[in-house]
């Protein structure tokens, strides 16, 4: 679905991704793993046009994305959930959800909202609360719900489990699995590898801005080299 070819990207003058090539398959729940600084978030931001691309190509179903504005890229059906500031914290939960539906045709909105509350039942109970007052897990669910309401075909999530207690993180990953079941392609950046590998289908491991491993989640779990790669010891 998304093909990245020889991508070199970073911030300002810093090149974080080095000549990276990989591709994400349609309908799959893929995880991008790797230690801090390995370029996971940089990859996401490069797809969304949010940082500097020095060279290479990123294609969505054959359509080149590099050079397009972020709004144009998200209008193609890619939803991006950044790690922070991913909700409107001064607005109510309900207003957040309504804003998320901006791209849906009017007649679909009621059913889409209904479906969202089925996936994230907790949000229904928090409807009139200010979103900034949600707990960490609820916050992430709301962010994911906003993104999903935009009717994307592909969702990119940047460390949705960061700072969450293990049980809550598991809830978040379960709801992502649910979304995959509803036909969404998912790409999730995670640092905590073992947890997400229980839920995702496929994994990419980055190191020093390059692809160190790719394969199914099971294969990744059994790969000792990957574990070592995290700590940088051999």
């Amino acid at each position: 679905m998304i093909t990245v070819q020889n991508l070199t990207a970073g911030y300002g003058k810093l090149e974080i991704l080095q000549d990276l090539s990989l591709s994400f398959a349609h309908g799959q729940f893929s995880a991008v793993l790797g230690p801090n600084g390995s370029g996971k978030s940089t990859l996401m931001k490069a797809i969304m046009g949010l940082n500097t691309v020095f060279g290479g190509a990123i294609a969505l179903n054959g359509r080149e994305l590099i050079g397009s504005a972020t709004e144009a890229i998200s209008a193609l059906g890619i939803a991006y959930v950044p790690q922070r500031e991913n909700i409107f914290d001064e607005l109510t939960v309900r207003e957040n959800l309504q804003l998320g539906m901006r791209r849906r045709p009017r007649e679909q909105r009621a059913s889409a909202l209904q479906e969202t509350l089925e996936i994230f039942p907790i949000l229904g109970r928090r409807g009139s609360q200010r979103a900034g007052l949600l707990s960490g897990g609820e916050h992430q669910m709301l962010a994911i719900a906003i993104a999903w309401l935009g009717a994307p075909t592909l969702m990119l999530l940047d460390e949705p489990s960061a700072g969450l207690a293990p049980a809550v993180a598991t809830d978040v990953f379960r709801s992502l699995q649910d979304l995959r079941g509803r036909g969404i392609t998912l790409i999730v950046v995670e640092q905590n590898a073992r947890r997400i590998l229980r839920y995702c289908d496929y994994a990419f491991v980055l190191r020093e801005g390059r692809l160190a491993f790719e394969g199914s989640a099971e294969a990744c779990l059994q790969d000792e080299e990957t574990i070592k790669g995290y700590l940088g010891v051999h």
Binding site: E71, S74, F88, E90, L91, L99, R102
Partner: peptide, 19 residues
């Protein structure tokens, strides 16, 4: 009004979700 408040609260997210 909702969109105005959204823009005031988080401009980059407002752009991303298509306001």
């Amino acid at each position: 009004g909702r969109e105005m408040r959204a823009l005031a609260n988080n401009p980059s997210l407002a752009r991303v979700i298509g306001i």
